[in-house]
Structures are given as C-alpha cells and as structure tokens.
Design a protein around this nucleic acid. Structure first.
Lengths: 371, 371
DNA sequence: TAGCTCAGGTTAAACGTTTAATCATTTCAT
DNA sequence: ATGAAATGATTAAACGTTTAACCTGAGCTA
C-alpha cells in the first residue's frame, strides 16, 4: 500500500524552473526559494497576513520575483477570485464620434482603476442586443455600460446607461440635463428674435430623442413659443450621417414653409441641414439660423462655424465608469440618475432673423422675463 | 489506512446543485446526470472523442445543459487551454476618428472569429508605450494590433501594425499604398495646372508622416514638379485637430508666399487649413485649391466639399484582424506587408488655378505622359 | 478459456492563484 | 517543567475546464 501511495504521489518536480524559457509562476518561484507557494503569494500581494513574514523573507521573495520577472497570471487569479476586472461596453457603433468620445472617457477612468473593457457595437439592430449581452455574460464581465442603447431586459450585473432614456430597475442613468439644454438653445433663438423655428427630431431608436423633444416642447411652452407641427421633421435611417439632415431640410424647403431658424437634433444633422440650406441658395445665418447639439470637433470648423449645445460626452463616460466601479462590490443603494450640465456655445450660425420678420417687437417683455 | 484514505477523500457532495441559484457548471451537470465531468465536457464541446458516446447519452447531456442554462466558464477554459481569445489594440487615442474607424473594422472581424479585444490609447506619449504593452501582456492577449503607433521593442506575441512605418521583425504591416496615393493626388493637382503647391506634413510622431512625404517627393520628381521647401510646413502638436492646420496655413499666409494649391497631410488639417484661407478672404477653390487625405465623414460636408484621397480605414482594420488571427496558432511564415489601394475622391475644393498663373501651358506634355 | 476488441465510459492531473486552516518551533511567563 | 503565546511558516482545497490515460464488462474469436 505504501508503495502504491508512493507511486501515485510522484515527486512534484516542476518542469518549469524559474530560469527556463517559460514565464515564472508563483510555484516556480516558491520552489526556487524553497518556500510554499502560499508564502510567495501572500508576500507578493501584500495580503493582510503578509506581515507575519519577517522582512528578510519578504525581501527574498520580492527579489526573486523581480529577478525572474514574475507577472501574475491574470486568468488564474480571475478564476480563483471570481473577479475578471473586466466590464462590457455596448455602443451603437464604435466609429461614430459620439460613442468614441464616451469610450475615451470610460477608458480614462477604467484603466487607472485596474479594469479593462470589452466593446461590442450592435449596429442599431435591436435583435442583436440579446446576443451582445450574452457575449458579455459569457466573458463574465463584472458590469456593463450602455451608450445610447435601450436594454431589452434586466441584467444580472451592475449596469450604467449613458443616455438611455428608459428607466430600468438596477440601472443608473448618466444623462444630459435635457431641460436645461433645450431651454438654453431655445432661449438663445428666442432672444435673437426667432419665432418660426424648424426642428429636426432624432431617430426613433435613439434613446435621447424623446426626452430631448419633450424638453424642447416644455421650454417652448414656458417661452410662450408655438411649435408648428409642420416644421417638425424626424431623422429616419439607422446610422447617423449628415446626409439624413440634408435630406430632411431639402424636403422641408421643398414644401416652401417659412422659418427663420433650424434646431437640429445633433451636430451631424445640423451640418447636413446647413449644407442643404447653402445648396438652396440660402445664407446662414442671415437668412436662416442653425443650432446643433453635441459640439463635435468639426462643429467649430464649419463655414459658418456652428452654434451648438455642448454635451460633455467624455466626462459622461468617465462618470459612468466611476459610478459603475463604485457599484461593483458595494451592495449599497446606487444613484438612479446622474445629470450633467449642457453648455451653450455661440458661434456664427445663429443671428437675428432678417428684418422682414414681423414678430420682432411683440415679445420683448417675455424675453426680459427669462433673463 | 483505509480509514485515513476515507477521511481524506471526503464524499464530494456539490454545494452547487444545478437547480440552485448559482450558475450551472460542468460538474454540477455531471453530478445531476450521474456522469463524469469528462463526459459532459467532451459532449458539450463536441471534441473528437465525443462520438464514443451513444446518441442517447449525448442527448441527455445536451438537454440538461439546455435546461439548466449551462454556459461554459470562459476564465476556467482560458486557464486550462492557455488561450484567452483576446487581443490587444493599441491606438493613439480612441476618440480620434481615424482610430475609431480602424477599431470598427477590427471589431467586425474579431467578433465573428470568437475573439474580443482590449483597447488602450497611449495619448501620443511615447513613454507610455511600454506600460501599455505590459498591461496587454499581463492580460495574456494572444496578439496585438497597433494603429499608427511605433513600437518600442519586439513583442513576444504576433503583432500587426496598421500604418506603422518602421519595419520590425515579426510584425506584419497593413498600410496604404502611399506611392499610389501621392501620385493620385499630385497628378490631380498637376493636371489641373497647379505648379506652386504648399504642403502640410504630418506630426513627427505619426507613423505615416515619413512614408507619405517621401512618396510625395517621388511623385513630384516623376512629374517634373519642383517642391519649394518654403512652402512645406509641418504639424507640430500631439493630438490632431483642425486647429493645427489652421495655424500652419495662417503662418504660411503671413509670409506672403505665393501658392495655388494646398496638399494637407490629412482631412483634419485640410479642414483647418481651408478655414484659415476662408478667414483670410481667399476663395476655395477659385483662389486656392485644397486636397486632403483620409476622406473622413465630414469631408463631404465642408463648404466647399473637400477633395481628398480616401483611405479604406475600416477595411484596413478588418484586414489587420484577419491577418492577426491567421498568424495566431500557425507557425507558418507571415506576410511582411499588406498594402491597400487609395482612391481619389474629387469634390469641390480643387479646380484649375486662377488664370493669373503663368506656368499653365508649360507642361502639357508631361501631363499626357502620365495619363 | 484465454485473449482480443470495442463500446462506453471514468480518473486524475493540470492550468496558476488564493486562502482558510493547520502546524512546528521557539520564547516566555508561571 | 509546563502551558500559552508568538513566530514563521506549510497544507490542501478550491475556482471550472480539459484531456491523456486508464478502466470495465460484454461480445467475439481461435
């Protein structure tokens, strides 16, 4: 029996001496130092009990780790600790400037927190969402950040939504303060004297479309400004592109409706819309003012430079990441919603309407009220 | 002795019945089915030996997996198989349109290949590169794709560089055919009649700067076109921004040098440069033609629309990913360089020079040579 | 009836860490 | 001399898979 035992329990001679080609492991270090792997692990991780080891031993261990260029195996550690230090980010499309900026903010925060992120874009296809989530869960992400995406169901890990309008149990929303944004933009146009304003609403699938639009209506109501439904159009196609704004404005012009200003859902469509105006022989801003939304990099390089509402996307990404990491591993109640402030950036695409407009003097009092 | 054995080998009653709250594991399934975990693993993975199990058993196993919603633990599998199905992508800055487009292409390919990717941006800081690489290696990525980034050293995993000019051992480069690109652009300007052309070179750190510039000189030589060093400027700051192009052109104009066309390193600087021309009261293209490089989304929405050389960035990303996955796990010699073709996109920002230019008739013959 | 083959599995180790529980010495107080 | 405490570790299990090697019994052959 003893022999049998002996034959079973072979002498565990490591094939992987720390001097070899293979990367050093805790075990190879331990063997080399003639210590147990527990000792090495504790000292290297500076775990609570590691001060039970005398200075001398600790030095020895750390020196060996240095010498053999030991790097902990992330996968093994993940398995043991049941933590992957990975989160999933779900965006409509990586290459869109909007998402890319939020991603940059997320990266800023996550890397310094020791986390990494995986990205998937669902390409505006709703039926893909479930599969995307599954891929994330299969990878054992510890949390999820969605960007401008409506989740199809509850998620079993902490989730933060950047610009997801639907409030869901367990999800923290990081959003722009749309009411303030709408108010800023509309007051700007109103104060300039505009009364006939055309609007481009966002795509139906965009999670910002509804809240932004209702905020605009509220701001209009407070200003006593009437919104002519005939002057409201909506972007339709899936992927944002200036083309969409272009087409929408061309259609509007074809109907020969009179308006003095255009408020676009985002800069992308504002740029397309402006282009349509220019192509139709209208001058911006002398004939028609244009205001956008987002303040993308190219807004200030349009001709004329685009007036817009700035959305601090990068900061929203950071905030989302920070909130998520806070939520992971703390069972405390999490914030339901985090709103960030917009900023009105006045450039060249807005100006008082041409003097042919009649309503000019009418509402001066109302303007003062809003100051 | 028997007793000792028994006491050591406790009955391995699982705490995790497949019906419980915990996710099902191979072991919990095996126990429930009264089979070994090996059997379950083999059948679920359809491993070579799985046909040793009769149809009946296989059905049972698969049914149980389905019923308990078994999902393989990715981390455990990675540890065991020593494969992470993860690659690292190193970019200058995630939010820059250039990188975002390449990333989108990479994602396209990788997801369908069962891989994920981690992104780090080095923010144009060379001293960060080493740390970025280390983070990747610590995460045990199976390969690395760099975008517009010069590696500081050789890497121990397969690597593909998108637009990295320095040829390094073991690295596959995916690049635009710069000679063709330069030739297309310059011939276009030349055929329009331009002889005095100003150039904006890229930032010193961009890996495309050198090859693009030398290709331009070569193309100029072949056309018999002289490049006036006084008309060559270089972008300086770290992060690309239209601002840089703006400043450079403003400086050029301040020196009162005469030129009829501007060839910018990329669309971003072309847009800034165009803005500077416009701000100085010059008309594009009637006074000065402008040609860019990349064909970013907003190029076609400039006023005037920007003529440019299109670079198929998304495709280059896909290609890079495909090449990398091919390289992983195959010891065959890999391609050293993969060149993709540029495309000249003629829009509104280029036109023949104002008739005041004198050289017009001189080189008609040379033009024909190049047809 | 010994030996072989084959079907249908099982065993146990391995991947590299972490960590709760335990152990062997020495030191110290009583 | 004895028990307690402190010191400085070790042991072994666990995380969830995968896989090479082995096992068992039935059926067949010579």
């Amino acid at each position: 029996m003893a022999e049998l035992m002996a034959s079973r329990k072979k002498p565990p001679v490591s094939k992987r001496r720390p001097s070899g080609k293979q990367p050093a492991t805790i075990r190879s270090l331990a063997e080399h130092l003639k210590l147990s792997s527990a000792a090495v692990s504790m000292v290297i991780n500076q775990t609570a009990k590691s001060d039970r080891f005398p200075e001398k031993t600790r030095k020895r261990i750390l020196a060996a780790a240095e010498k053999f260029n030991y790097r902990p195996n992330f996968v093994a550690r993940s398995l043991r600790k049941q933590q992957t230090f990975t989160i999933g980010v779900l965006v409509p499309e990586i290459s869109e400037g909007y998402a890319a900026l939020v991603l940059a903010g997320i990266e800023d925060y996550l890397l310094q927190a020791g986390y990494f992120f995986l990205v998937i874009s669902h390409r505006h296809k709703e039926h893909q969402l479930e599969q995307c989530l599954r891929l994330f869960m299969d990878r054992l992400v510890e949390g999820i950040i969605t960007v401008d995406t409506m989740l199809p169901r509850e998620i079993s890990v902490p989730t933060v939504a950047v610009s997801g309008h639907k409030r869901m149990a367990g999800v923290t929303n990081v959003v722009l303060d749309h009411r303030q944004a709408a108010s800023l933009a509309l007051r700007h146009l109103f104060q300039l004297g505009h009364r006939k304003i055309a609007f481009i609403k966002g795509q139906p699938f965009s999670t910002d479309t509804e809240s932004r639009w209702s905020s605009i209506r509220e701001a209009a109501r407070q200003l006593g400004l009437e919104i002519d439904p005939k002057l409201v159009t909506q972007l339709q196609a899936d992927s944002p592109s200036p083309e969409l704004g272009y087409d929408v404005v061309k259609a509007l012009l074809a109907e020969r409706r009179h308006f003095t200003a255009l408020f676009a859902f985002n800069d992308i469509s504002a740029i397309g819309g402006m282009r349509a105006l220019l192509d139709s022989g209208l001058k911006v801003p002398s004939d028609i003012s244009v205001i956008g939304f987002d303040d993308i990099q190219y807004a200030s390089y349009q001709n004329p430079r685009l007036t817009t509402i700035r959305q601090p996307l990068r900061h929203m990404g950071e905030l989302a990441a920070e909130t998520l990491i806070r939520r992971i591993g703390s069972k405390e109640p999490h914030p339901k919603i985090i709103a960030v402030a917009p900023e009105l950036v006045i450039r060249e695409s807005t100006a008082p309407p041409a003097s042919s407009s009649l309503e000019k003097q009418v509402d001066e009092a109302a303007v003062r009220d809003w100051r």
